[in-house]
Amino acid sequence: MLIQRRVLRRRLRAAAFAAALFVLLSYAVWPWTPMARLARPPRAIVFYGFSILGEVINHGVFPAFQKGWRDRTREKVEIVSSFAGSGTVTNQIILGVPAHLALLSLELDADKLADARVVPAGSWRRFPFQGVVNRTPFIIVVRPGNPKGIHDFADLGKPGIRVVHPDPLTSGGANWAIVAEYGAGARSGAPDPRRAGHDLLLGVWKNVVAQAASARAARTQFENGFGDALITYEQEALYDRSRGKLKADVVYPRSTVLSEHTLVRIDRNIARRDADLVDAFSRFLFTDEAQRIFVRYGFRSVTDPLNEANPGFGRIEDPFRIADLGGWKRAKKEIVDSVWKRQVLAEAKK
């Protein structure tokens, strides 16, 4: 009797374990079973973007495109997307992720793709606006009420200020930030612009306490309480403010750079049957409809009149573009590599 009961109990237990396992397995397999797959999988655009694009593409621009496409062709299309630091995305594409389109934070990353022979050199310049989809200036985000009295990039060099900065190795935003800092110094009207740019950059970097892999990750660190100031895209701050989530103040420097975000089409990943869809989406990004959505999410449109729709855009006395510094190739060599990497980083450690 006793033995029988014990055997029975053991069998029951084994059955319960097997049942639990079965439930877990069926939950996992379900989307791949024939029942769930009856509907033919829709065509999808594979879109890689730099970190701050997640919301505007997934919740704003793509749904609008999806609706328009459906109205016209009755086909429901999907987007498969991945967002990370611009440099990370670039390296992933070089290593072979199946991206159709990539929206990179800076043209330099597009050049990197061309150097790796992933795309023909300069092919993105065939898009409208030379491939620049939208812009946003670099600004300083500080704690509410600006307790440290930060009013310009130069103030970030004061002793005791802790700056959160993305990492230029993987973040396009960080490269922009370096150009913004250097440019602000160089354009301050000092007698030796190069010296002034170098000094401002050094001041900031002496106070960098955290380097994050992407602009978005840097923002998360700042939100979690690290640092007194964060250098980032205006869009980040505006988007948070529009949702009432911004628990910080925005400081507009006198002089700063407007980042320009470059769209790249990766031909080798696009099957012939998907080309119409991919091209329709890339054209859509430059239409007024899409540009208005970008403006609503805090990006500055390449079509200037549309920018009036967002009253949150702050005034910058002396905005400049990368072209004013001779383009990215030159800026990378002369500012990021030779000034920041070789001089400032070493001097900042002392």
């Binding site: 594979v46 997307s81 991945s82 990370a84 992933q92 992720v97 990750a217 998360t220």
Partner: peptide, 20 residues
């Protein structure tokens, strides 16, 4: 490759959401 709905595992999803 961290593709949503394609190759993103649960830990990668957690990391991506946290970073965002």
């Amino acid at each position: 490759g961290n593709l949503r709905l394609k190759t993103q595992t649960a830990p990668l999803y957690i990391f991506a959401q946290f970073e965002a």
